[in-house]
Each structure stands twice: as C-alpha cells, then as structure tokens.
Amino acid sequence: MNELAIKELLFKMADDQLILGHRNSEWNGLGPILEEDIAFCSMAQDKIGQSLAFYSILHEMGESDPDKVAFTRNAGQFHNCHLVELPIGEYDFSLIRHFLFDTAEYLRFQSLTNSSFTPIAEVAAKIKGEIQYHVLHANTWIKQLGTGTDESIQRMQKSLNMAFPYALGIFEESQYEGDLLSENIFEGEHILRERWIEEVDRVVGQTELILPDLAAEEAHLGGRIGEHTKHLQPLLDEMSEVINIDPNAEW
C-alpha cells in the first residue's frame, strides 16, 4: 500500500477534527442558551477524541506521538481545510459551518467504512455513529432558523453565502487521489463532493435558504498543502500555550 497516500489522508482528517474541535470549544460558556453551550462542547470533545484516534494510527505508522503531532507543529505543517480554522464568528456562522462540515464528515466516514486499509475502516465505523448526532443537531437548527423569522433567515443566508466557498475547500484533491482509489483505500474527494452537494441541497431545500450557485463559486484551496489563512497560527499558539511553557514536562 502507498504509505504516503495513507498518511496524507490521515493527517487531513485528523487536523480537520482537531482544529474544528478547538474552534467548537470556544463556545464554552458563551453559547446562546445552555443546551447549545453543552452541544458545542460535546461536539468539541467528540472531535478532539476522533482526531486522537487518527493521530494514533499515524503514530503506529512511525509518526511522533499524538500530543507532539497535535501541539508542536506550526501552521505550514497542518493539513486542515480553511473552513475549520475560521474564527467562530456569530452563532449563525458556527451553525452553518457545523452543518456544511459535519455533513461532509458523515459521508466521508460512511465511505471509509469500506476502506481496504483496516485501521481507517475500523475508526470510521466507530465515529460515523457519533458524527450522526452532530449532523442531526445541525439539521435541526438549519431547518428551524432557515424557516424562522426574517432576521434568522437573512442571517443564516449571509453565513451560508460566506462559508460556502470555504466548504468547497474541504474537497481539495490530493496528489494521491488515483493511488487511493486504485487500492480501494478511499473513493476520493470528487465523488464525496457530489454526494455532499446532493445532501446539503436536500436539507437546505426544506428551508427558505438558497444554496449558492456552484458555477459561480470558487473553492478556497491550499489548506491540504499547508497554505492557510491568517487565522490558523494564532489558534495554534493558543492551543500550545501550556505545552510550550515546558515541552518536556511529565503529566
């Protein structure tokens, strides 16, 4: 099997989970209602736990231990898409991002349960059930606020328009797409994107919201090859503040 291709796939999934997990955790204590505060914190904990599962596979393949990989790289060494690194913004933006990203995640892990690379297939089967709760939570709010008041619809639409080109960046293709496909490790970003558009369209279609015109949108690319927005490095600095005080401390 093509080890570089597998590692790249693992890194982008793990980094997406870790970074969005940390962004979600920023709602801790600030959620608009207590239940939503708890929801975003629970999803944060899920995602960071899921990133650990992928970093652990990477560790078994010879990479550093998960804590080192998570907390001692700089932005240029991260493979997450731009969507997950953007600041949390207003709650409407965080909900839209949650919806667009978790819909893609669910489809990705559903597909990866059939991966010929067993460690990925096992973890995907496990976390698919967890992500399902995230998707159900997102869909509930998209439907509620997307059919609510003029203000809620207008706010959700504005965030949807803003987040959409970033969400397309989730599906930035790897130089290894062909290898992954021919070895039945992963079906590839292209087919995933098609399924995602269909599913996002199905949910948005039940609301007053309008999905941006795909033909007119250009995806924000570069995240998968370490090119990031200005928002990632400050987040990493904050995440690693404690470990940097004494990187060799025994916990």
């Binding site: 939503e36 708890i38 929801a39 629970s42 999803m43 904990q45 899920d46 709760y133």
Partner: peptide, 13 residues
C-alpha cells in the same frame, strides 16, 4: 428531549 448532548458524551438531557 431538551438536548441530544449532555454532561458526558454518552448522555442526552
């Protein structure tokens, strides 16, 4: 159901 998430990952409220 008040929320599908709770005080631990495995519980709803």
């Amino acid at each position: 159901m008040k929320t599908p998430f709770g005080p631990t990952l495995c519980r709803s409220i």
